[in-house]
Design a protein around this nucleic acid. Structure first.
Length: 574
RNA sequence: CGGGCUGUGGCGCAGUUUGGUAGCGCGCUUCGUUCGGGACGAAGAGGUCCCGGGUUCAAGUCCCGGCAGCCCGACCA
């Protein structure tokens, strides 16, 4: 491609509001332009990257036995009512009506549609398994789009859906998809980690998220440097047993024999203030968190230096539902004094505690009385616990649940997810098959997503420097960036001629080349080449032409060398 | 949806406090010089100052009402 003809304008200044590297650089390099909040146009350069990511995904999906198709983006809302997901999604889904007032939505995902189609086509166990996918635009009316393409309202996603006679068969395909995903992200040059994840709106049981490790990621990833344990912080656990941390020095200060003692702590509803006032470590305080448990009230107990993992609490009390108290709720429950709740508060239906509380210890905790706490609260003597469950949010250094080594926490961008769905959609949409005994069963499903446009963001986050993007070879819009330094005088024609010739030879040899044939100064051309980030830059100037050489620079490493002009195209093809 | 903020040539911004008919840098056009890391000179083009109402002799600026976008939080792939 001749740059003089390319639809491209690079930006010298950082666009306002583009705060993260990928957003800033994709805009500056002319890959994308914003059209509305969370909606982006893909310009020619960006389009080529998007297409390359999509092609890698396509190749790996095909190799894993999935079949590509295309589903409509606009889908009848009626299908979503049948699976009850119209309500589940709520305002997160874009909705519209046609001229006859029939309701539609813009697809955020496609379980309902694909399951309906499969239900109409396949009836026998002989037809299964089947794995179908599409690469198509998806829509979510996010509360707050941000970070450019990372949290957009329109995004390109590969979504696959597999149908099986039973869970064992599903597991085989699930593993195939898991392996295919690892190949995709490896080919995209991402540093990634598969982690145990939460299922969100899609539902289902077993699932893994593929996380591209990045500072700007929106998810916390708990992972073990010693073994392969890794999980989204929402579902991450620490190794814990009853009696855990026995003899820990932070618990040594108080004796179990001392009597319960009420102390005056005026205007100190927070852990930090109480700990300071009483000269205790925050870990010596017992935190009591009130929540609604169906019709009753529950208390969650954990050490004062720990945070509650709400997802863990919800899971621990399932199938009952838990919802944390908000300020208004305390008025209806006078036995619970906000900021001064004790584990023995009245009117509590369930006291559930993290195992960290089980160590023999005299706690400082709320007195269930405004402006008062108590010292020396002892488990079994002064308060009781009905249920034990992991409730605390994991922090770095906690023991790994698999091997006990200290855990690390880093940020990640979710670029893919695989689910074992079960029969939820097959049942709702009537996708049944007939087995050898002529009996009908709902198909067992899996679904598998990859955020194509989000991968582009993750790749730029990982592959850039202060000058611009440093595309991995597999995703670069062009293989090489040829810069002609034409200079002046009689050499100008010679350099242009030599550069034209090299460009044509490379193109003929199957190398994709972005050829800077513009009438611009060398500084401008070099700066743009750095910004656009092709993996290899070829420079041809008057001196080089005179000596019969072309210079080559590796964008990522900065390494330079020279090649003879004669036969350069053949050498560069390899 | 709470909190903070911004809408002025393609991009980045000043001008709004104190109302007087729009400016700077980059980019763009033409000519000349220059030509290996964002050159220089000269001459130009380009603006419904987000939209609608109001106040005023006069509104980018003041008042009222909308809309859009950004950041923090809650939420979420």
């Amino acid at each position: 491609m001749r740059m003089s003809r390319l639809f491209l304008r690079t930006l010298r200044d950082d666009p306002a509001g583009a705060d993260i590297a990928s957003h800033r650089l994709l805009l500056r390099a002319g890959c994308i332009r914003q059209v509305a909040s969370g909606m982006y146009a893909w310009l020619p350069l960006g389009q080529r990257v998007l297409a390359k990511v999509a092609q890698i995904v396509r190749e790996e999906m095909d190799a894993a036995g999935a079949q590509e198709m295309t589903l409509p983006i606009t889908q009848p809302l009626e299908l979503w009512e049948r699976s009850a997901r119209n309500d589940d999604y709520g305002p997160l889904m874009f909705r519209l009506e046609d001229r006859k007032q029939v309701k539609f939505c813009l697809s955020p995902t496609a379980e309902e549609v694909i399951t309906t189609i499969v239900a109409g086509e396949l009836e026998s166990y002989r037809d299964l398994p089947v794995n179908l996918y599409q690469i198509n635009w998806k829509y979510r009316d996010e509360l707050r789009p941000r970070f450019g393409l990372l949290r957009a309202r329109e995004f390109l996603m590969k979504d696959a859906y597999s149908f099986h006679v039973d869970v064992d068969d599903l597991r085989r395909t699930y593993q195939d998809m898991f392996d295919a995903y690892s190949r995709v992200f490896t080919r995209c040059a991402l540093t990634f980690r598969p982690v145990e994840g939460e299922s969100g709106e899609i539902g289902g049981d077993i699932n893994h998220e593929f996380m591209a490790m990045a500072e700007i990621g929106e998810d916390d990833i708990v992972w073990c440097p010693k073994c392969d344990y890794a999980a989204n912080a929402e579902v991450a656990r620490r190794r814990s047993e009853q009696g855990d941390e026995q003899g820990d020095e932070k618990h040594d200060g108080a004796s179990g024999d001392a009597a319960l003692e009420k102390v005056y702590t005026p205007g100190m509803p927070g852990i930090t203030a109480v700990a300071q006032h009483l000269g205790a470590a925050e870990g010596e305080l017992l935190k009591c968190i009130a929540f609604h448990l169906d019709d009753g009230v529950g208390l969650a107990l954990l050490p004062g230096d720990r945070e509650l993992n709400e997802a863990a609490l919800r899971k621990a009390v399932a199938p009952r539902t838990a919802r944390l108290f908000e300020d208004d709720d305390f008025a209806a429950h006078p036995g619970l004094v906000k900021g001064y709740i004790g584990p023995d508060a009245s009117g509590v239906a369930l006291v559930i505690s993290d195992p960290l509380v089980s160590a023999p210890h005299a706690w400082v905790t709320g007195a269930n009385d405004t402006d008062h706490h108590v010292r020396n609260a002892v488990l079994g003597r002064d308060f009781q616990v009905a249920e034990w469950a992991d409730l605390v949010a994991v922090v770095p250094g906690d023991p790994c649940p698999s091997c006990g080594s200290p855990l690390s926490i880093d940020r990640g961008i979710e670029v893919g997810q695989v689910f074992q769905l079960g029969t939820k959609y097959a049942e709702a949409m009537g996708a049944l098959y007939t087995d050898e005994e002529s009996e009908q069963h709902p198909m067992v499903m899996g679904c598998y997503g990859i955020g194509i446009s989000r991968i582009v963001t993750a790749v730029v986050e990982e592959h850039h420097d202060e000058l611009g993007i440093t595309w991995p070879a597999a995703l670069a819009p062009y293989d090489m960036h040829l810069v002609a330094i034409t200079g002046k005088g009689k050499a100008t024609g010679e350099v242009s001629e030599a550069a034209d010739k090299l460009y044509e030879e490379l193109t003929a040899a199957g190398v994709s080349v972005l050829y800077d044939d513009r009438d611009a100064s060398p500084g401008v051309k070099f700066a743009d080449a750095d910004l656009l980030g092709m993996p290899v830059r070829l420079t041809l100037g008057a001196k080089g032409v005179a000596r019969g050489v072309v210079e080559r620079r590796n964008r990522k490493t900065g390494e330079d060398d020279e090649l003879p002009l004669e036969g350069a195209a053949a050498a560069l093809r390899g």
